[in-house]
């Protein structure tokens, strides 16, 4: 066994053709991807204040979720937060930004404007009715604008989605988009508690489970 497989909770997996593939590393990769999302500093209107600025500041502190490294260049970012209205003139630019981001890339549509056009849906001759008409969206966060807590709920939803989702075996396969609306009757304290639980849970990657999963998978492969 080489250095990589000694250090990582993976198993070597024989593949017809002679090359090898690391499988249980999936979990580790997804865990690290989900916890170090680098957002693109992209804000068109009101939501940018709440979603990009207030979350990044001291009270709400985006750094708790590992997503504070905002990058002005799309080539260095992997999370595109569409914060604000997209109009026809901006649409091709948004598409370009998305295309310039390296895979894997994730998109969150925050606020009603990015979801469906919001208050500018009717009688507007320029407003694009939903950013998903231009680029695929992974998580929708409703609100006009969403509170920072609501944005965090969406971010955690995205992290969960990344962890459960894509594997290097099936690149590009994603779960269906999620509407990260806060459940009804939920109070601010509930959100804070849930966030704390998630944070404390996410702080440790479950190595034992990862190894077990890898072992199970390789035993399945033996039959193959």
């Amino acid at each position: 066994m080489g250095v990589i497989t000694d250090k990582l909770p993976g198993v070597l997996e024989p593949v017809p053709g002679g090359s090898v593939l690391l499988t249980a590393v999936d979990q580790l990769i997804n865990w690290s991807r989900s916890n170090s999302l680098w957002p693109l500093t992209f804000g068109t209107s009101c939501c940018a204040i709440e979603v990009m600025m207030a979350t990044g500041a001291a009270r709400h502190d985006l750094a708790r979720f590992g997503a504070e490294v905002a990058r002005p260049s799309p080539r260095q970012a992997d999370l595109l937060v569409i914060a604000g209205t997209i109009v026809k003139r901006m649409a091709p630019r948004l598409r370009t930004l998305y295309e310039q981001m390296a895979e894997p890339r994730y998109v969150m549509a925050t606020g009603s404007c990015a979801i469906c056009g919001g208050p500018f849906m009717y009688h507007s001759y320029t407003t694009v009715r939903g950013a998903d008409e231009i680029i695929p969206v992974d998580v929708y966060v409703p609100g006009c604008p969403p509170r920072p807590e609501a944005f965090f709920y969406g971010l955690l939803t995205l992290q969960k989605m990344i962890k459960e989702g894509e594997s290097i075996r099936h690149p590009g396969e994603r779960r269906r988009p999620v509407l990260a609306a806060l459940p009804e009757g939920m109070t601010l304290d509930d959100i804070r508690k849930e966030m704390q639980d998630l944070l404390s849970h996410d702080a440790n990657v479950n190595m034992a489970a990862a190894v077990a999963e890898g072992a199970r998978y390789s035993s399945e492969l033996k039959d193959f």
Binding site: R89, Y122, H123, S124, Y125, T126
Partner: peptide, 22 residues
């Protein structure tokens, strides 16, 4: 608006298929 936009939106007789009626 873009240079190639057709029509002048704030005219009362402006028509645009893109616009939705409430």
């Amino acid at each position: 608006l873009e240079d190639d936009w057709v029509g002048f939106p704030l005219r009362k007789d402006y028509e645009d298929d893109f616009m939705l009626e409430r």
